[in-house]
Design a protein around this nucleic acid. Structure first.
Lengths: 219, 219
DNA sequence: GTCTATAATTTGATAGAC
DNA sequence: GTCTATCAAATTATAGAC
């Protein structure tokens, strides 16, 4: 409560060492999980001694919380809502496809991002606030921006934009989980473009735009 | 390879103790994760001594693998494909709603199931085969049964039943993840019935059944 | 402020009694 | 087959030198 800028960190600390410790801790925690990580390895990865780590962070749990809070906030999640900035000049199909590709690009073949999300899910049992922070700062902003876009889009005629946004997100996240997190690409294969095509198609089934209107729907 | 019935278990072992150890290990691993679990606690939870644990399983990793293989196989996942057994006598809306409710019932307010899936995701980085086994024995059978149902359903007129099945599963799993695994019910609230209604609605948008045909679609 | 060295405990795994 | 007792290594955290 006294140092709101750097919670769990000791006052008068050098910003360079703080960053070095957080960076080293990030690498080890991502690789080994919370319980599998030792303070010795964090100190070695950070290039400092173990007492230095303890002088900057009260204990292992405090370091983990500080690190995770920073990662949840500072990851480039904020870029996704900006997929909609040009939305008035582009068709909804273009905008939604760009968002889907950006979300998948952010995770597919990006082992660090996958490992981070795996850590959040894996530790959210013993660190419930970590899970909540992820939903608050990552999932909710994207859901809200997408819902707002779907609701305000002129040609789409969606009955429930909020549920549609959950469906859109869930379909993509499920692909990431089965293929990347659980290594099931070869067990339940699915082309990402095929899944995106399907989502775009589904979201335009009730389209009332004069251009593509009602043509192949009535017969 | 020599004892295919109980892999990682030593020969001539009493089935009762094997079950007791697996049961105790399950409780501790679910609560503490892999690295957070000690063989002492497993022995205590199983009501046997530590050397007994080691006489039944070669080491911690072998015990974990044996336990997880059993859990992935023996959970009551197989019940979901049976949601389709009466499918020819019921409307697709009834069948799909029952499946969605069964999937959500299996996880919502079921902390053991949630903890198990969290463990699978959390440890699939260091135990890739665990992730693959989960996809193979849990996700794939449900996906295939649902895809087959969607493709063979008379009234539904889906362009891509396979992608539709992924969308259906993903929408539900995403709700489970955000609400249950990440504790975000209050951050991104969503009524489960509203989400199910949306899925049913979406999957029937291309319906060509004479009963509910084309009425509110053309205008 | 940062280090070396170490305390106090816990860990995975085993020897040997019965 | 199962236990008590124990090992060697690793772990969190700190005392004290500089």
């Amino acid at each position: 409560m006294e140092s709101p800028k750097t919670p769990n960190a000791i006052r008068h600390a050098s910003p360079e060492k703080t960053a070095a410790i957080l960076d080293g801790a990030m690498r080890v925690f991502l690789e080994q999980g919370y319980a599998g990580t030792t303070m010795d390895r964090i100190a070695a990865a950070a290039g400092v001694s173990k007492p230095t780590v303890y002088s900057y962070f009260h204990d292992k749990e405090g370091l983990f919380n500080a690190l995770m809070e920073q990662m949840v906030r500072e990851k480039q999640w904020a870029k996704f809502p900006q997929d909609f900035v040009l939305s008035t000049q582009e068709s909804s199909k273009v905008v939604l496809r760009r968002l889907a590709n950006d979300i998948l690009d952010n995770c597919m073949n990006n082992s660090e991002q996958i490992t981070f999300i795996r850590l959040v899910i894996g530790e959210s049992g013993r660190f419930p606030e970590l899970g909540r922070a992820f939903v608050q700062h990552v999932e909710k902003p994207i859901q809200e921006a997408l819902t707002h876009y779907l609701a305000s889009c002129p040609n789409l005629n969606l009955r429930d934009p909020t549920a549609s946004a959950r469906m859109f997100m869930g379909t993509l996240i499920y692909l990431i989980i089965t293929h990347e997190m659980l290594h099931g690409q070869d067990i339940v294969p699915m082309e990402r473009d095929r899944l995106i095509d399907h989502l775009i198609y589904i979201l335009h089934l009730s389209e009332k735009n004069p251009d593509t209107q009602q043509i192949n729907k009535c017969l």
